[in-house]
């Protein structure tokens, strides 16, 4: 625990000094909140519904943020720490392999949480977002967020394990993230896509995550409809855990 705390402090300081990471993790979610909030934030999602567009922006942004932290933040940070030889040095200090990566994940989770508070506050204060969830759904929402976080973080770690070159890591991470953003409904509404593409995007985890979180957030979840999405996320978590288990990240 001592080591996790020590590395959490180090990674947090390092993260806040990376302008690109701050842009993607803090600034961009705020921009998305403002853009979408101003465009359709005050329109009901259906005729007669009290749920507004902004109420869907909040869960969308949470998924966007977690995907960004996991698919871009984690692999790019690991790749940079490795290229600076710091990863090798860390493995000669009294910290376990798991301990270091846990602290790195904790750092990104913490910044994601802070970012959610920020754009969440903007959504509530400036765009009249409402909190629809009951107690049970709030707890399930938080647990689902952790599952989504785990999925994206372990996928990012998988990228870091398999690609050593920082430049390639950067390209692969960015492509993975953008592919998910453009096929998840965050950037382009899914309804406006051709039918075959709407089915194709189900291969990627972001659209499943958004569907679940949106339904939970507006307190309209039907678990028989979302069973497939949950199954997808659980299977993805298991698959990536299995894939990274047999291969340790090399420090050089």
């Amino acid at each position: 625990m001592i080591a996790v705390k020590a590395f959490f402090k180090v990674e947090l300081k390092a993260l806040f000094r990376e302008p690109v990471t701050i842009f993607f993790m803090i600034i961009l979610p705020i921009i998305l909140t403002i853009v979408f909030g101003s465009t359709f934030g005050d329109s009901p999602i259906k005729e007669g519904s009290k749920v507004l567009g902004i109420d869907l922006v909040v869960p969308n942004n949470i998924v966007f943020l977690l995907a960004n932290a996991g698919l871009m933040g984690i692999p790019i940070t690991i790749s940079e720490v490795r290229s600076q030889m710091a990863l090798k040095r860390y493995f000669t200090l009294p910290v376990t392999y798991l301990g270091y990566f846990f602290s790195l994940g904790l750092t990104f989770a913490f910044v994601s949480f802070a970012s959610v508070l920020l754009f969440g506050a903007i959504s509530f204060i400036f765009y009249d977002a409402s909190f629809w969830m009951n107690g049970a759904n709030t707890v399930i929402f938080l647990i689902t967020c952790l599952l989504i976080l785990y999925d994206f973080f372990i996928a990012g770690y998988f990228i870091a394990i398999n690609i050593k070159n920082p430049r390639t890591t950067n390209i692969v991470s960015t492509i993975s993230f953008l592919a998910m953003v453009f096929t998840s409904g965050v950037a382009i509404p899914l309804d406006s896509m051709p039918k075959y593409l709407q089915h194709a995007v189900d291969i990627l985890p972001m659209s499943h995550s958004i569907k679940i979180l949106q339904d939970l957030w507006i307190n309209q979840i039907h678990y028989h409809d979302r069973f497939g999405d949950y199954l997808y996320l659980v299977l993805m978590a298991l698959l990536f855990t299995f894939l990274v288990k047999w291969r340790r990240l090399r420090w050089d």
Partner: peptide, 14 residues
Amino acid sequence: VGFLLQGTGLRKNL
């Protein structure tokens, strides 16, 4: 046992 590696191993933005 402490170890000094051949490269520096310092984080550039710390």
